[in-house]
Computed example of a mutant assay.
Amino acid sequence: MKTRLLPFPLAAFLTLSAPAFSEGIQLTIEGVRNNRGNVLVLVFDNAKDYETLNYWNAVGYAEISAQTGIVRHNFSALNEGPYAVFLFHDENGDEDLNTRGNHLLEGVGGSGAPNREDDPNFSQASVLPGKVTVGVHYDK
């Protein structure tokens, strides 16, 4: 059997245009303030469900034990995108984001937020598979 080599420009083009292998979303969560409860993560693939936080239609969900500082989780099956990530630190384990009036009692975060206090819409929050970092915001 004879091996046929492609001309260099064609071989280079095929190499550069081949889709990169993706391992889904490799999520890093920064700024978790304590070890109580879990960090609940929802991943959405459309604006309507993200902006209404319709968890029934999330394409990714995880409950991760809270750890002070940094928490990581991989969503290896999410290889298409774009996706938007919303999370909250459920310190008391009731699976509800607790507030008092407009004051957050638990931390929240979203992908694409330029500042932790921001609440990005789906377009702003959209990320492709790969490394994604989300910071947690707590009201004082």
Rank of each mutant, 00 (worst) to 15 (best):
M1D: 13
K2R: 15
K2E: 15
T3A: 11
R4T: 15
L5G: 08
L6I: 08
P7N: 14
F8Y: 11
F8Q: 12
F8K: 12
A12K: 10
F13N: 05
L14R: 12
T15P: 03
S17F: 05
A18V: 06
A20H: 08
F21G: 05
F21C: 08
F21E: 14
E23K: 10
G24E: 04
G24Q: 05
I25R: 01
I25A: 02
Q26K: 12
L27F: 01
T28V: 09
E30C: 06
E30V: 05
V32L: 03
V32R: 02
N34I: 02
N34Y: 03
N34F: 00
N34P: 01
N34V: 00
N34L: 00
R36H: 09
R36W: 02
N38C: 04
L40R: 11
L40A: 04
L42Y: 12
L42F: 10
V43A: 06
D45Q: 01
N46P: 04
A47N: 01
K48D: 15
K48V: 08
Y50R: 03
N54D: 15
A58V: 04
G60I: 05
G60S: 08
Y61W: 13
E63A: 14
Q67K: 15
T68A: 11
G69W: 02
I70P: 07
H73E: 14
N74G: 05
N74T: 14
N74H: 05
S76R: 15
S76N: 15
A77H: 15
N79G: 11
N79H: 06
P82N: 11
Y83M: 11
Y83K: 05
A84T: 09
A84K: 08
V85W: 08
V85S: 06
L87S: 07
L87V: 09
F88I: 08
H89P: 05
H89G: 07
H89N: 11
D90H: 06
D90S: 10
D90Q: 10
E91F: 00
E91C: 03
E91R: 11
N92P: 01
G93Q: 10
G93F: 13
E95F: 11
D96N: 14
N98C: 10
T99W: 03
N102I: 12
N102F: 13
N102L: 14
H103E: 15
L105T: 04
L105S: 07
G107I: 07
V108H: 10
V108Y: 12
V108T: 09
G109H: 04
G110L: 02
S111N: 05
P114C: 13
D119G: 07
D119R: 14
D119W: 11
P120D: 11
N121F: 00
A125L: 02
A125E: 03
S126K: 01
S126I: 02
V127Y: 00
V127L: 09
L128M: 15
L128V: 07
K131A: 13
G135H: 08
V136F: 06
D139L: 04
K140G: 14
